[in-house]
Design a binder for these strands. Structure first.
Lengths: 244, 244
DNA sequence: TGACTATATTGGTCTGACCAAATTGGTCCT
DNA sequence: AGGACCAATTTGGTCAGACCAATATAGTCA
């Protein structure tokens, strides 16, 4: 029951932060430029300084503004934190295909990393377990949702073997920022059957032999296919929107 | 003049956030447990509710607490955001060697990614520029600081060619959280001369041929050497501390 | 014992005030 | 005119006390 909650997304603070965030990310202020004072912002939003301050603290933690006695200033985007990614993506609907592409590239690369590292560390028993999951992945080949779940389980399993906290945290952020959002777009990559079979075969063989490199390669291939598919789907949507 | 500033690290809000963050990361509260109320915290810190609220908003954005009407609750660490990494590392001095190792592993992997991608996209002219930077890297071989600077410049250059915003943002976070901190520890990896020469030679050759894979491999080797060195240095410090 | 309800508690927001630091604009000297 | 200096204003940082709505809790009743 309490799975999706976060700092109530329905508070004034949250809304003000969202408005300002959007304005800043859209580039309505130049880097180094000063934001209106807290008092002025409070007036603008028919709110109070306290709430505005909380909103500003939010943005400061995203690394897009710099609060200092004397004034709040815009920070150049290159110095922002990872957490702006999701917001950057939500700026447009559908999101910028290039951004999606970059995102999936990194996501894939990290998956590859996890896989390789996990298999190097895995016990024979764990390798067997992993092969189970691959078999399950194969069985779910006909439904996207089932496959997506199986896929996630496999990667989660690798992650749990790898036990790299850094990787896990980056994964959290990226997933929170992106994966769920792409899913709500309703893009359901329907993988080519031959590609799918190849992936499963390679992966199973790699796990049987404990060949980390081969497994990593398989994951890389799979990620690339997925990426190309998703990006072209997003691009198509953008086209459709431009046409209408 | 304005390079290292961030939300004034010398404010009450900041201090309170730091204290609570440390307590939470040290595990003094169980996941799901309730934090004292804002009013109680204000009393405890001889402060006001407003300030406490700002501090709490901070922690909520790190993903370590969940603020809800009715009470503030602790979130399990697995669901936290990347931004806690730095704080996790500052928890102990010297930091946990295993964490450092994991960190450098990811950092290296991302550097490799950037390098490969950059060289694939690079124009002949850019490749030449990169070779300049490698030459500079070679010239600085005797001083750590100079070499570190040259090294950074080279990677920055690759990053600017790659133009992958996602990668850049992750890099920002990781650097902010870690690299600078490791530097303040005063650990100055003194690379073996043969390793250094090998790196420079391979890298230069790769750039001359535009061989992305070879360049990536060289970076990987270099990262691995650095990592092993730093981790063992950190471990040594920990030992020394245990002994005393 | 379990479902329900009233009360106390908690976060969300507002107001208005004071302080210290930074900005700004004017002044004075060169 | 140009630059250094200084005072007034603006800005963020903090505090106190108040009200509301949602939640949690304890007490009550079936």
């Amino acid at each position: 029951m309490n799975s999706r909650v976060m700092t109530t997304p329905t508070s004034l603070t949250y809304e003000i932060a969202a408005v300002l965030r959007t304005e800043i990310l859209r580039g309505q202020y130049r880097p180094g430029e000063r934001l209106p004072s807290e008092r002025d912002l409070a007036v603008r939003f028919h709110s109070s300084r306290g709430v505005v301050r909380e909103a500003l603290t939010n943005l400061a933690q995203l690394g897009i503004i710099d609060i200092q006695p004397g004034g709040v200033r815009i920070v150049p985007r290159e110095r922002a934190h990872l957490s702006i990614l999701g917001h950057l993506m939500k700026l447009d609907n559908p999101p910028d295909p290039q951004l999606v592409d970059q995102f999936l590239q990194i996501f894939g690369a990290l998956s590859v990393l996890t896989t390789r590292s996990a298999i190097q560390k895995a016990s024979p028993d764990q390798l067997t377990q992993a092969r189970e999951l691959v078999a399950e992945l194969d069985r779910q080949a006909n439904s996207f949702d089932g496959m997506h779940r199986a896929w996630r389980e496999l990667l989660e399993f690798f992650k749990s073997i790898d036990k790299n906290l850094v990787l896990q945290l980056i994964g959290n952020d990226l997933k929170a920022q992106f994966v769920d959002q792409i899913l709500t777009l309703g893009i359901k990559p329907d993988l080519d059957e031959t590609v799918h079979n190849m992936l499963v075969k390679d992966l199973d063989e790699a796990l049987r032999l404990g060949d980390a490199q081969q497994a990593a390669d398989a994951i890389q291939d799979y990620s690339d296919h997925m990426r190309v598919f998703v990006v072209s789907a997003v691009t198509a949507r953008q086209q459709r929107k431009v046409d209408s």
